[in-house]
């Protein structure tokens, strides 16, 4: 599962491109949860506009659909958060900080950062979903 965590620093025969892709992927991963928040946000804004400005869809339908999407977004973020929590391995090691210059430390650090970003993204999705539930129509 965590193949890049054991990567030696020594340049190896076949390593270059393969390891590069794996590495780059793990930096992208910290942005996944905020990206889910952003997509959710854009959908909220866009669908409400289609309902209130263009009057294509009834607002009650939009509110129901978006609330369902909020739950979906939260589920995806929870899954991302769970994966990054495992990558962080804090529950196993009890180690909160990762300042060491080892691949393992870097790997867990990225897990930690991704986990914290999942938490903040979940809070963001909950905040943005509240108007859907609390505010009536298109006044």
């Amino acid at each position: 599962m965590n193949d890049e965590s054991n990567t030696s620093d020594r340049p190896r025969e076949d390593e270059d491109r393969h390891a590069f892709a794996a590495e780059a992927h793990s930096l992208w991963r910290i942005t996944f949860a905020p990206t889910v928040w952003a997509l959710h946000f854009v959908l909220c804004y866009g669908l409400v506009s289609l309902s209130c400005a263009k009057e294509l869809i009834p607002i009650a339908t939009v509110q129901a659909v978006l609330t369902a999407l909020s739950l979906l977004a939260l589920a995806i973020i929870a899954w991302l958060g769970f994966r990054s929590l495992r990558q962080w391995r804090v529950l196993v090691t009890g180690q909160l900080e990762h300042p060491e210059g080892t691949p393992e430390s870097r790997h867990r650090f990225l897990g930690h950062a991704a986990f914290l970003l999942s938490v903040i993204s979940a809070i963001g999705v909950i905040f943005v979903s509240m108007p859907l539930i609390l505010i009536g129509g298109c006044q």
Binding site: S49, C52, Q63, V128, P131, C138
Partner: peptide, 19 residues
């Protein structure tokens, strides 16, 4: 703008305070 839309942006403006 519709008040729901205002609500989204108001909520996000509050959320940014956390980080």
């Amino acid at each position: 703008l519709p008040s729901i839309s205002l609500g989204f942006f108001s909520a996000a403006s509050q959320a940014v305070v956390i980080p």
